[in-house]
Design a protein around this nucleic acid. Structure first.
Lengths: 148, 148
DNA sequence: ATGAGTGCAAAGGCTTTGCATTAGG
DNA sequence: CCTAATGCAAAGCCTTTGCACTCAT
């Protein structure tokens, strides 16, 4: 995820927020920093552990704001916690390896060949359904090395 | 999903339950019937609405049993409720159209071409990660006709 | 009989919200 | 100044669990 080291990350996030009449406050900036530093989606307990000063309620509230602005994505697996990551637009499109046992999620980069097949599937589905599809989400479900 | 009208559905579900030392009770059979009659994953409120006699706690408990036995799959979108459907083994492999607005989920059949690409991606990911992947999950995210 | 399944009600736990305080423009 | 954001605590809400009763083997 080379884009995560992009120095303009902050600026791009700020722009996306401004477009929604939202500010890039200190708390929101810290969330972006934590998520940018991680190589996988994080739960809120994990975020709070990495930035001890943050208030839980503000984290929840700011993640909603950041998600509405398209800066972060929320993902839900089968375990108890939701997970957050920077949006594809900021870090590059990728898919997920999801551990069916512990819920852990890791990133896996998308490849051109696969994306081409997926785009075709999306187009086909759009034709045959009332849905207008915006993007796709591919999870590879298995067991992570920790749980194996 | 032609398999859903398969008269042996009940028998196959019973066999999967027996393999886990579980019985196909009346309550569990009703759950399978409701899910088989639906053409999309259902929330628990929806299930309770369609089978008024069922007790909420038993539904939750039995869906756990059925999921452990591989008879149903639980899927989580972005809205508040989990959704349940019969497992791929009973109804055929398929993907989902997920409405980003209301959380509604519809089925979309898998195609051979796409599955081939996906299998290749799964194999590649398995090589480069500590994950052992069992299956995949593809969601096409968009806006359904109701919310458009 | 005897353990599994059921149903009602209460408890759990992640997430959201109320409200007073603080910060930003 | 005045609206937005924050932080603490309390409330919400889906889901799980305790417990007594019933059913099937």
């Amino acid at each position: 995820m080379v884009a995560r080291r992009d120095p303009s990350l902050r600026e791009r996030a700020a722009a996306q927020l401004r477009a929604r009449q939202q500010r890039l406050t200190a708390g929101r900036e810290q969330l972006i920093e934590v998520l940018a530093a991680a190589d996988r989606p994080l739960t809120i307990p994990e975020i709070l552990h990495r930035r001890r000063g943050l208030a839980q309620s503000s984290v929840y509230r700011n993640l909603v704001v950041l998600e509405d602005a398209g800066v972060v994505h929320r993902i839900v697996t089968h375990d108890e916690f939701a997970r957050y990551e920077l949006a594809d637009e900021l870090t590059g499109h990728h898919h997920h390896l999801v551990c069916a046992t512990c819920g852990r999620v890791e990133d896996v980069p998308a490849t051109a060949a696969l994306e081409k097949s997926l785009d075709a599937a999306v187009a086909r589905a759009a034709r045959t359904s009332g849905f207008r599809t915006y993007h796709h989400r591919l999870d590879l479900v298995g067991v992570c090395s920790r749980c194996a």
